[in-house]
């Protein structure tokens, strides 16, 4: 997650908007020509609604693409486009919020308390993991003296032998710390938000786009 920036709408409204657009992407029909037109449009509206800075998205997308590449190669173009659009919507939402606003938004989500806690930790640990990955990459670059494409290749090779064991050990230690600190025993209460016009705008704008996308994608144009 990168530097958050000022957005007039409340983080919760932006998160809800992102979630609605994501649903729109996933539900829209990708087997029709209309679907292939509509999916990028949903992704684009996420960028606009979230006012995402493209620079702050670029690195996340690059990292995502590495993992996403097999899907593009193996799947049909429709499925690949659907996945890519959904990824853009997700990344646009998350990268425009930043960790703290995202936390504030999740804690206010109208979801069961335990689900909120789970999502909170997933987000928090994802950021910790991202930074851990950067450190592993740096260590490889410094100790192996390789950079650029070679550096990325070395990192990819290190994923199963360095990254995975580290992540597993880490998960173990974090689990212990959660137990020790009583995380999960007490659930933070959802604090209420006072909704303003702009917040409704973001949510209903997203809803409009999502519904239109689903409807339009089902039209058989040719």
């Amino acid at each position: 997650m990168t530097v958050p920036h000022a957005h007039p709408a409340h983080p919760l409204a932006r998160l809800c908007g992102g979630a609605i657009l994501l649903c729109g992407c996933l539900v829209a029909d990708h087997t029709t020509v209309a679907g292939l037109i509509v999916l990028p449009a949903v992704a684009l509206s996420a960028l606009l609604l979230q006012r995402t800075r493209l620079t702050s998205m670029a690195r996340l997308m690059l990292a995502g693409t590495l993992f996403y590449l097999p899907v593009v190669v193996l799947a049909s173009p429709g499925v690949a486009l659907k996945g890519l659009s959904a990824a853009i919507v997700g990344v646009a939402t998350v990268s425009s919020l930043g960790p703290q606003a995202l936390h504030d938004a999740i804690i206010r989500m109208p979801l069961p308390a335990l689900v909120r806690l789970l999502v909170l930790q997933m987000v928090h640990q994802a950021e910790v993991l991202r930074r851990e990955s950067v450190r592993i990459h740096q260590a490889l670059v410094v100790r192996g003296g390789v950079d650029g494409i070679r550096g990325i290749w070395e990192f990819a090779k290190a994923i199963p032998v360095v990254w995975l064991p580290r992540v597993l050990f880490r998960a173990d230690r974090v689990g212990m710390a959660m137990d020790m600190r009583g995380y999960g025993a007490i659930v933070p209460a959802a604090r209420s938000v006072r909704w303003r016009g702009i917040d409704f705008g973001v949510v209903f704008g997203s809803l409009g786009v999502a519904v239109a996308a689903v409807w339009f994608s089902a039209l058989v144009l040719i």
């Binding site: 995202l102 936390h103 950021e127 974090v174 710390a177 020790m180």
Partner: peptide, 21 residues
């Protein structure tokens, strides 16, 4: 759970016990 409520713990890797952003 009862025991742990009475204990404060510092892990040697402090990062792992910070659970909030």
């Amino acid at each position: 759970a009862e025991v742990r409520r009475r204990i404060g713990f510092l892990f040697s890797t402090p990062e792992d016990q910070l659970l909030f952003p």
